[in-house]
Simulated assay, not measured.
Amino acid sequence: MAKKVPKTEEQPEATPKKKGNKLVLILAFILLAAAFGFGGSYLANKYILPKKAEAAKNDKTTISKDEVLVPISKFVVNLSGNSNNNYQYIRLKVSCLVADKDASENLTKSMPLVRDSVISVLNSKTANDLLEANEGINNLKTAIKDKINQEYGQTIVKQVYITDLVIQ
């Protein structure tokens, strides 16, 4: 009879176990990575994002439920300071924040007054006035708001938002 030879590490039957071990490790790693990904997303949505949303609610620039934004169509206006036939233009689109729907309707009815106020403010500005570091655009928004309220005779516009601006 033939003698049975004990199996050694060099025999081909031992290699399938190594491939199987690698496959199990790869699958375990993938499952672990997926679990950490879902767990991290869950924790971020539960604890981090609500704090950011709450902070945004407490921001002073939020618009209340009663307030209304009134968009005003585009302006293309010559800027002042046109020396040496060097004309500069501004294209501007603004929206005005008003207290409620009634104020919105009143402002919409008075749109020629609003447009005239904005044009008169823009005609008095130079490109350098508007392009100042941090003050230029903020000063323009304040000037537009003040001029509209002055011409209207009462405070109707709470804030002016610039939605489009090109200076050429």
Rank of each mutant, 00 (worst) to 15 (best):
F75M: 04
D116W: 04
A127N: 02
Y89W: 06
N58T: 09
N45H: 11
A34H: 09
P12Q: 03
V68K: 09
D146Q: 10
D129K: 00
C96G: 01
E67D: 03
V68Q: 07
K22I: 15
K4M: 12
Y47M: 07
P71R: 01
T61N: 15
N149F: 04
L27H: 09
L79H: 01
K52Y: 10
N84C: 05
I156T: 05
V70H: 05
P16N: 06
K60A: 15
I48E: 11
P50Q: 04
Y87R: 15
L122S: 00
I63Q: 09
L92M: 06
K19D: 14
Q159E: 13
L107H: 01
Y87W: 12
T108P: 03
A34W: 14
V76W: 00
A55L: 07
P16A: 06
I167M: 05
S41P: 02
D116Y: 10
V24T: 11
K51W: 06
V70N: 03
I90W: 02
K57I: 08
L31E: 09
T142Q: 14
K93M: 11
K147F: 02
A28H: 02
A99M: 07
I137N: 03
Q88T: 13
P16D: 05
I148C: 02
G39V: 06
S110H: 08
Q150E: 15
I30K: 03
L79I: 03
Y89P: 02
R115K: 13
N134D: 13
Y87I: 15
S64N: 13
Y47S: 09
V114H: 00
S104K: 07
G20H: 14
F75T: 03
S104M: 09
E54M: 08
L97R: 04
V118T: 01
